[in-house]
Design a protein around this nucleic acid. Structure first.
Lengths: 132, 132
DNA sequence: CTTGACCTTCCAGTGCAGTGGAAGGTCTAG
DNA sequence: CTAGACCTTCCACTGCACTGGAAGGTCAAG
């Protein structure tokens, strides 16, 4: 599997994949005699993992750490569990923050729906929220 | 209230506050005779809003839009509800992604706890996860 | 043998959200 | 009146995650 095929399969670009390699997220793949990168099929799963972890807000540095563990690197189990725990706490904190914001946005939407029809006449200024 | 007091009150820096002003998130405050920014007390609420919205993952550009509405700007109510709905959908998508990641991290932590004691001897390589 | 798609490396630039520092002005306490 | 804290503007720089483009190599089809 060459880099273009991997990019297509994962919804990324060849640029991004080379960048991931340079950033230590993808290990240097074998090369064809012509010097082309030749990825094993399971690399798609690795790239998918990177994208989903990233979509969840982890930085590439964090994802690289998780992948290093996944690759069976040096860190001992205690280090591993510490790292996982830290990531988990971080994710839970983010979820809590987002839930707060969701509540705020729902409240604003509700307010908007109660205010809307009469007060928002043509040319009027729409004031869903009271002033500070 | 001068800029240093506002920064202290909101846990930001004077640099950040000037940056927010330049970015259109804070309106140009009145000035003292000496040329110092002199904020009304309720500006703390505005900055707090910015920080909480930002903690939830909204960009400064998005927050600026919301604040423009809050300031009773031009956009009609329909525009407001559209904007709120879009933000809400975005936040809900992010929450779903984070919940997926949380499940993943919990699963990894669980795997770690079952593998740990025996296999992770001194100098051994800790392999919590199977290869791809 | 040439065309075109695809690949290589390398270097530079983008957008976001600040952050640092220079050079200088204002105000209050001692 | 001077020291120090605090403020002003302006310009440049950081870190992250790419993205673009130049200059050139590889390979299959026609």
């Amino acid at each position: 599997m060459r880099i273009g095929a991997l990019a297509t399969a994962t919804g990324t670009t060849t640029k991004t994949l080379r960048f991931y390699e340079q950033a230590g997220l993808l290990t240097d793949p074998p090369r064809t005699p012509g010097g082309y990168r030749d990825y094993p099929a399971h690399t798609t799963a690795r790239v998918d993992f990177i994208r989903s972890a990233q979509a969840a807000g982890l930085s590439l540095a964090e994802i690289r750490d998780v992948l290093a563990i996944r690759d069976g690197g040096q860190p001992p189990c205690t280090h591993v569990t510490t790292l996982l725990g830290r990531h988990l706490a971080d994710v839970e904190r983010r979820i809590a923050e987002l839930e707060t914001t969701r509540a705020m946005l729902r409240e604003l939407t509700r307010t908007a729906s109660t205010i809307a029809p009469e007060t928002c006449t043509e040319g009027d200024i729409c004031r869903i929220l009271a002033a500070d």
